[in-house]
């Protein structure tokens, strides 16, 4: 197999279409590993993966942990209760300390946009961005693309509606960057406060009416909406949000027949998504979770797998 031309995965920005296809193709093989009775391969034996999480995330951390373990890597989880005011160790010192332990990959989640870029500049090992602030969440976009491609056979030319708190969403950003590479029509859908005009810079359509936003879409990707948005005067109430933008059966019916429903999780059932949609026949929510492990196995393999040396 051709070599993967990146040392870090800091964002979808910087990955070419060929790079993305390379990851998706590699993931196919690893999806199969997770479905075996013995879900372990020796590929990364002797390699060390550190999950460095400055934000709580059961699902992403577990996904990376399983991915590493199924590849036989030694996986260490570090959770740092962080707040910018708490006077703990600086990120610089944490980098240097971890580096002295010779990891092969640091998987990192941090509330500050660009933090993985800072770490990548200060360590010799690979860095995978598991979500940085409002910036990017590349592994989520890759697993979403993988899920869509398996369900639809292709990404090419699809219409994808991303509904919800796009302004604060690293998932939406990474997805838009990725999907645009495959000629998708991407729509950001939500109130003006959460879908501001600057987002048009992604070459996407902006919709402030949910019906128009999901009409004839192949994929409806629903984002989590949080109560903390009430604080910045960005939303009035979750109830009104649900009434105006929540994805229910009636709204989903406007999309293409059989349109895929996705959600990066964790879901607020009854807020941004109704339970019968979340659990509906075309819901791909659990496929996304399964794909997540495969994508992360593929990335660990591509970054840390032995490419010839002892």
């Amino acid at each position: 197999m051709e070599t993967f031309p990146h040392r870090h995965i800091l964002g979808i920005e910087g990955l070419s279409r060929a790079d993305i296809e390379h990851v998706l193709d590699t993931s196919n093989a690893f999806l199969e590993v997770s479905r075996r009775p013995v879900r372990k391969v020796p590929t990364l034996r002797g390699k060390t993966v550190i999950n460095l999480f400055y934000e709580n995330s059961t699902r992403t951390r577990t996904s990376f942990e399983l991915a590493g373990k199924r590849m036989s890597a030694d996986v260490i989880n570090i959770s740092v209760a962080s707040s910018s005011v708490s006077k703990g160790e600086t990120l610089y010192d944490t980098c240097k300390t971890l580096e002295a332990m010779h990891p092969d990959v640091i998987v990192m989640r941090h509330a500050s946009s660009g933090a993985p870029h800072f770490v990548a500049r200060n360590v010799r090992c690979s860095v995978i961005n598991a979500g940085d602030g409002m910036h990017e969440h590349p592994t989520q976009a890759l697993l979403d693309a993988f899920t869509i491609r398996r369900a639809r056979g292709t990404l090419e030319g699809l219409t994808v509606a991303i509904v919800g708190d796009v302004a604060h969403s690293r998932v939406a950003r990474s997805n838009a960057l990725l999907l645009k590479q495959f000629g998708c029509t991407v729509r950001f859908v939500g109130p003006d406060t959460l879908v501001p005009p600057e987002l048009a810079g992604y070459g996407v359509e902006l919709h402030h009416e949910v019906e128009a936003g999901v009409r004839d879409a192949d994929v409806v990707m629903v984002l989590r909406v949080q109560t903390e948005r009430l604080k910045g005067a960005l939303l009035s109430s979750l109830g009104e949000y649900s009434r105006t933008f929540g994805i229910n059966r009636r709204r989903l019916a406007l999309a293409k027949p059989g349109a895929l429903v996705m959600h990066p999780g964790p879901m607020n059932r009854g807020v941004e998504i109704e339970p019968d949609v979340a659990d509906g026949a075309t819901s791909a929510v659990l496929d996304q979770v399964e794909a997540g492990v495969a994508i992360r196995m593929a990335l660990l393999y591509l970054l840390a797998g032995d490419s010839g040396e002892a």
Partner: peptide, 19 residues
């Protein structure tokens, strides 16, 4: 400008930094 990190606009949106 609460929590603001850089000029608000397309670039702040892209970098995920508060404007």
């Amino acid at each position: 400008t609460e929590g603001a990190q850089m000029n608000e606009g397309e670039l702040s949106t892209r970098l995920g930094l508060r404007g």
